[in-house]
C-alpha cells in the first residue's frame, strides 16, 4: 500500500499555528494560508489533510468558528479530510462528519471505549483515528499526554494492549511531543511499542526534509507521515519531497 504524506493544520481562534515542542506560534488566518502560502497548490501534492482545533477548552464559539473555517476551506480543496479537537461525546464527532470530515480524530478521549464504540457503530471504524501525543515519562517509557500535552495518561504499550478499542478504530496518529516542530527527523523507535497492533500507523513530529520521510517509509509498519510544519515545506516543498521519494523508489503516489 502507498505511503501517505499528510499535512496537518493546527487551528485556534481564527488562526493557524506553528507548534514546536507544543509551544505555539500564531502564523495567520485562512486568507493568509491561501494567499501567502498558496495552500490550494500544496493540497495538490498531499494525500490527505488533517485539521485540528487545538483550543484547550473548545467552547461553543470556538467550535462554530472552526466549522466555519472548515466549510470555507472545503470549497476549493477536494482531498480527504480528518477533523479533530474537543471530541468528548458522539455529537461532537457528528458535527465534524456533517461538516466534511472523512475521518475524525479522537485526542484526549482516546481511552473512552463507550464514546468510541458509539461513533464506530454509526460511522464505521475506518472513520475514526486515534490521535496520541506522547513523550518519555520519568521512567523513560513512551507515555501518552492528554489535554494539549499537559496531563500524563497511560503508557503507549499499556494502551495498545486494549484490543477492544483498537478493533473499533482505524488508524493511529502518533505524535511525538519531543520531536514536534523541530524538523530533525521522526521518532522511528516508538514503533517498538506498536509491534502487535494491526491498525495503520501514521507518525507525526519531526519531519523537516525529504530524507526524514525516506527513512521511516522504509519501515513496513509506517503507513504515513503527518507534518504540520508550514515553513519547512513552504510552497511546493511537499511536491518536491514526493518527487525525491519516487526517485528513491519509495511507494508514494505520483499525482501528476
Amino acid at each position: 500500500m502507498f505511503k501517505r504524506i499528510i499535512f496537518a493544520l493546527l487551528y485556534k481562534e481564527n488562526n493557524f499555528y506553528l507548534s514546536r515542542n507544543f509551544s505555539l506560534q500564531k502564523v495567520g488566518d485562512l486568507n493568509w494560508l491561501k494567499n501567502n502560502f498558496a495552500f490550494n497548490e500544496t493540497c495538490k501534492s498531499i494525500d490527505e489533510l488533517v485539521c485540528l482545533n487545538i483550543d484547550k477548552n473548545v467552547s461553543i464559539k470556538s467550535k462554530n468558528n472552526f466549522i466555519k473555517m472548515i466549510n470555507e476551506l472545503r470549497k476549493t480543496i477536494f482531498i480527504p479530510l480528518t477533523l479533530g479537537g474537543g471530541i468528548k461525546k458522539k455529537e461532537d464527532a457528528k458535527l465534524y462528519f456533517e461538516n466534511g470530515a472523512d475521518k475524525i480524530s479522537i485526542c484526549s478521549h482516546y481511552d473512552d471505549i463507550g464514546l468510541i464504540k458509539k461513533i464506530s457503530e454509526e460511522y464505521g471504524p475506518q472513520s475514526i483515528s486515534i490521535f496520541l501525543d506522547y513523550k518519555k515519562n520519568h521512567k523513560g517509557q513512551n507515555s501518552i499526554y492528554i489535554n494539549s500535552g499537559s496531563s500524563p495518561a497511560s503508557t503507549i504499550s499499556e494502551f495498545f494492549k486494549k484490543e477492544k478499542i483498537l478493533k473499533l478504530v482505524g488508524e493511529i496518529i502518533i505524535n511525538s511531543i519531543e520531536h514536534d516542530g523541530v524538523g530533525t527527523g521522526l521518532d522511528i523507535k516508538v514503533l517498538n511499542d506498536l509491534k502487535k497492533i494491526e491498525n495503520p500507523i501514521l507518525l507525526m513530529g519531526g519531519a523537516g526534509k525529504p530524507e526524514h520521510f525516506d527513512i521511516v517509509f522504509k519501515n513496513s509498519r509506517v503507513n504515513g507521515v503527518v507534518t504540520a510544519n508550514l515553513f519547512n515545506f513552504l510552497g511546493n516543498g511537499l511536491n518536491k519531497t514526493r518527487e525525491i521519494l519516487i526517485k528513491k523508489n519509495i511507494n508514494v503516489i505520483n499525482f501528476i
Binding site: 500500500m1 502507498f2 501517505r4 494525500d47 490527505e48 464505521g124 471504524p125 475506518q126 482505524g170 488508524e171 494491526e198 491498525n199 495503520p200 513496513s220 503507513n223 504515513g224 503516489i253
Partner: peptide, 9 residues
C-alpha cells in the same frame, strides 16, 4: 501487510 480499512489513494 494489508491493514484494514483499505484507506488512501
Amino acid at each position: 501487510n494489508f491493514s484494514l480499512p483499505h484507506m488512501g489513494f
